[in-house]
Simulated scan of single mutants.
Amino acid sequence: MTTTADRMPALYIGHGAPPLLDDPMWSGQLATWAQELPRPTAILVVSAHWESAPVSLTASGAPLVYDFGGFHPRFYRMTYATPDATALAARVAAMMPRTQPVHQHASRGLDHGAWVPLKIMYPDADIPVLQMSLPTDDPYRLLALGERLRPLRDEGVMIVASGFLTHGLPFLRDFSIDAQAPGWSVDFDLWAADALARGDVDELAAYRSKAPGMPYAHPTVEHYTPLFVALGAALRADEPSDQRIDGYWMGLAKRSLQVA
């Protein structure tokens, strides 16, 4: 891996769905954000859409995963062919505890939690991208995973945790992009924004009992918990994060942030 003087930030981003690619506002926000970041030598993504233990890694050159339904056929023909990420895969595998073997997947490519936002942020697809599975929903174990991955940031690798700060799809009634956000979505979003601004990791980890809007905001929690990988990769998890994008998309909170 190439060493760089610029320590790469770690990000938590709302990845949306394929129609995000047609949304000029959110696409513009992601593109502008990417332009303001130092250029990574490689990108490691932990996405809500791949829950698997032990930790598993994607195969370089494998086809994209079209893990969605009901959208325009053109989304199923999209490609995002990035350079080989075998070196990063070997580096990540070596960073894991010997008691926790890493599974190198032979045929799985990037899912939409990775390629949809990256297609906007890095449209030339000229940066190696590796995806890692989300091995648990335990916030403290994910913090520890992020901490283990932290040295990658000094090697030019951007760590991207991809989810959605609220994701109560079963409780939405309006699926238009500019739909009014339900109360449970707003309440959870503002609670999280406040805890992030204070660097209160324990509050964020106790979301099941402390967050307003539960369980509607997250009937399943895989879109929220990647946040803890990003926080764990921070130099200090209890430092306030830089919240770069806020607002709502289909009524869901698209709040996204970076940590130092």
Rank of each mutant, 00 (worst) to 15 (best):
Y216Q: 13
Q35Y: 00
P73R: 14
R39C: 08
P73A: 04
E147I: 06
K119T: 10
L172K: 07
L134V: 03
W33A: 05
A90R: 15
P219T: 11
V45P: 07
M250W: 11
M1Y: 12
S56W: 09
R148D: 04
D246M: 03
W26F: 07
G146E: 00
P128M: 02
D137C: 02
V92H: 14
V46I: 06
S107V: 10
P9D: 06
L152D: 14
L118W: 13
V92A: 12
L142K: 14
D154T: 05
P212S: 06
D238V: 04
R150K: 12
E155C: 01
V157Y: 13
F75S: 04
Y66D: 07
M121T: 03
L165N: 02
V229F: 01
E222C: 03
I159D: 00
V46Q: 08
A211T: 14
Q258G: 09
L190H: 10
V46E: 09
S185W: 11
P123Y: 12
T166W: 15
G113D: 02
T166E: 14
K210L: 04
L227F: 05
D189R: 13
Q29A: 08
E203R: 00
A10N: 15
G109I: 07
D6W: 09
A230S: 15
T3V: 01
A195D: 08
G163I: 02
R173W: 04
G16M: 05
P54T: 08
R173Y: 04
T225Q: 08
T3D: 00
H223L: 02
T86L: 06
A81N: 15
L172I: 03
Y224P: 01
A125M: 09
E203H: 00
T82Y: 10
V229R: 07
I43N: 12
R255I: 02
P38R: 11
R148T: 12
Q243H: 05
P40G: 04
L118R: 10
A205M: 09
W115R: 02
A53N: 13
M250P: 03
P18E: 08
I159T: 01
D126R: 10
I120H: 03
F68M: 10
A144S: 05
V201F: 06
Q258C: 05
A193N: 14
